[in-house]
Design a binder for these strands. Structure first.
Lengths: 256, 256
DNA sequence: ATTGGACATATTGTAAACAGTATAGCCGCC
DNA sequence: GGCGGCTATACTGTTTACAATATGTCCAAT
């Protein structure tokens, strides 16, 4: 091997000038198959709140490495979909009763605003999309519980999309997921998430450009969902106990 | 060393039964000093959109390891505060013009709702907190740009806190940060984020329990902020160019 | 002089081994 | 017989080194 060049070049202390990342590949971690898999499993209620998400098992299940799984779990944890506990691992998030109520309150605010904006912005393409979804929801097999859950969630997402605000759309997506967790935690067993007649009504009102009516129907629909969950009675005792122990533990730590 | 026990114990195929994580330590990654440091640096505009966040440099600056930094950056990326580009690294997020508008629209919706709820729920402790903040904001040194920025952000956060909904509070926090990025990207140089008189007005209306007035003032305040930013003219050409190249690239990839 | 290629460097991404911690089961003790 | 300590195990968390990618710089050729 010839070495026609001096061994070291000059140190170069100037900053590298760094082209700014204008034309970057916008592929996000949200498109990651692991993230998507866990999210759909949760929204379809195949994964229940509190379920353990072991890294090795997930890595084997998805055919990937632990590092990849850790990244996905961290991402889901910052979205409050999973809960990470130091040295114990990751679990499907279980909202508290207060948090469940806050989630529904937030949905009341955001989705009523979304319906309002959707009526304002409704155009031909939007009408077509909405009609297509309503037809799918009307015709779907009601015995297929997983498909039902996916479709009802998609209706709310579609309304947020029609509102034309991506930030609001992301928030709605997040709130939908957290609603799934809230319902899974506090539901009376056997009841569906959404009452089956509400979506066609809301959709029809949007198509008729009846803004006040659509907003009212959406608010009513969400309140109806909210009234279907109840705080777990036995659960409260347990929570009280754990609160006591936590307080004791904190005091012991603080007092020395 | 004696070995009184058989070498292997029985395989134990039963699932470990796994106590559920009720009494978990809720310390979150949001409390992480690296995350907090970057967030405050951004909200005080010491870090500008597009700035490179190199892992080694951050690790040295915070006196920690690269792994820790990577975790923090991933978390910030899922909150859309930093942008991660494969093999290029992390940068302070730079919202598009459309995204900036969506952020303000979302703030209009959420913060007007928060003001309304704050008026409804206002109690003695809330009044005291609000008065204390207003006094701090009135007395602060206006030449200290960093303190000013922190205080104006804290006012909006305080209103969200008074609304009593943790989910909404988190959303407001996120929107405040993204607003900082939007303003830093599109501001006319030298103007403050919030007009200085708006906060005392809104605070007084809340204290007077004038719900409609407070909501109106908040909406007006946010619209005023929004009108202060302008799309970058020279920027549009660049964006157009990158759009052309991206489109060409996508076509090439799709066509084979 | 400008352009294209190739090396060198800096930085990110990944794998594997190691260490630390909580949990479960067992034995001795009261 | 119930209870507390002890040990083994399984899991997470961290460190380390290595590989891959992008980028800047230099040289050669046109």
């Amino acid at each position: 091997m010839k070495r026609t060049r001096p061994l070291k070049r000059k140190p170069k202390r100037t900053e590298p000038k760094l082209r700014e990342p204008e034309a970057a590949d916008p592929r996000s971690i949200d498109d990651d198959p692991v993230v998507q898999g866990i999210l759909t499993a949760i929204s379809q209620k195949r994964l229940k709140p509190g379920a353990k998400l072991g890294e090795d098992k997930l890595a084997a299940a998805f055919g990937t490495t632990r590092i990849h799984i850790r990244q996905a779990l961290s991402h889901l944890a910052s979205r409050k979909v999973v809960m990470q506990i130091p040295n114990r691992g990751a679990f499907v998030y279980r909202p508290s009763w207060a948090e469940a109520q806050d989630i529904f309150a937030a949905r009341r605010i955001i989705e009523t605003a979304a319906v309002s904006a959707a009526v304002d912005r409704l155009d031909k393409a939007g009408k077509a999309e909405l009609k297509a979804h309503m037809e799918r929801e009307a015709r779907h097999d009601r015995n297929d519980r997983w498909a039902s859950l996916s479709l009802t969630a998609e209706f709310h997402i579609l309304v947020a999309k029609l509102a034309g605000n991506r930030v609001l759309l992301e928030m709605s997506r997040e709130l939908m997921l957290r609603t799934s967790l809230a319902i899974a935690t506090f539901e009376q067993p056997g009841e569906p998430d959404c009452s089956p007649d509400a979506h066609p009504d809301i959709g029809a009102l949007i198509l008729a450009r009846d803004k006040a009516g659509a907003v009212h129907a959406m608010r009513h629909h969400i309140e109806e969902m909210e009234q279907r969950i109840r705080p777990k009675e036995g659960k409260d005792e347990v929570d009280e106990l754990t609160a006591i122990f936590q307080e004791i533990g904190a005091r012991a730590r603080a007092g020395g």
